[in-house]
Amino acid sequence: MNVAIDDVVLPGDHCEEIATAGEKSKVILGPGLRKEIDGVFITKAGVLRKRAPNTFWVDSYQKRYVPARGENVIGIVTQKAGDIFRVEVGGSCSASLSYLSFEGATKKNRPSVKIGDVIYAKMLNASKDMEPELVCVDSHGKKGRLGVLEDGFVFKCSLNLIRKILNPNCPLLGSLKNEWPFELAAGMNGRIWIKAKTMRETVAVGNAILGSEYLSNEEIKSMCTNIASILAGHIS
């Protein structure tokens, strides 16, 4: 069936609009779209989205992470195997992380990463046929925001929720950031790591994030003020 932008789409549907756009100019096909000989086809169930000028993707509900190049993920070190660490990221197979891809690491100066550590790393390489590769440094060799996440609390959620809270239009982080000190790392693989000063505050951040999955922007704002007032002790 031919579909238009912002329609609910199913695998096998095709979109004439993308094909005509592709004849004239460059088109970026995001997740859920596939170019075949005779047109552009949908491969996931969801809502077809477009961003100007020519980016198309299917916004689908998903919990299984499929590694993609350039994404920041939260992983758990499961094994030390010679030069590499095996990191579990929730994909079909575990990812590898070289001990040299940490800031300031050399062959003699190994980073202090233990089995069971939670790390925030970037997908350097992700293809269908090979195991994904992670790094904890940027192209300048600086650690930036990546590295081992100490203390804190990790929980899982759907991949959509991650995209929702990281969207610049989402009011969740905006309404929480002035309430109490906390730290957050959101991995595109559906894992969130949070850290706050007390356990009550950590639980409050976690509940606010998980609660916002099916709420509208207005509802998120009121939920955040509600949580903040409970935490401040105004309401018991």
Binding site: G22, E23, S25, K26, V27, I28, L29, G30, P31, L33, R34, K35, V40, R49, R51, T55, F56, W57, V66, A68, R69, G70, E71, N72, Y120, A126, R145, L146, I162, R163, L166, N167, P168, L173, L176, K177, N178, W180, P181, F182, E183, L184, A185, A186, G187, M188
Partner: peptide, 22 residues
């Protein structure tokens, strides 16, 4: 003319996922 992109990162304009407040 078609560029396949397997990540949502470049489709939606997402912010960095590592944040700290206050």
């Amino acid at each position: 003319n078609y560029i396949s992109e397997s990540s949502f990162l470049y489709c939606e304009d997402l912010i960095e996922g590592r944040l700290s407040f206050k």
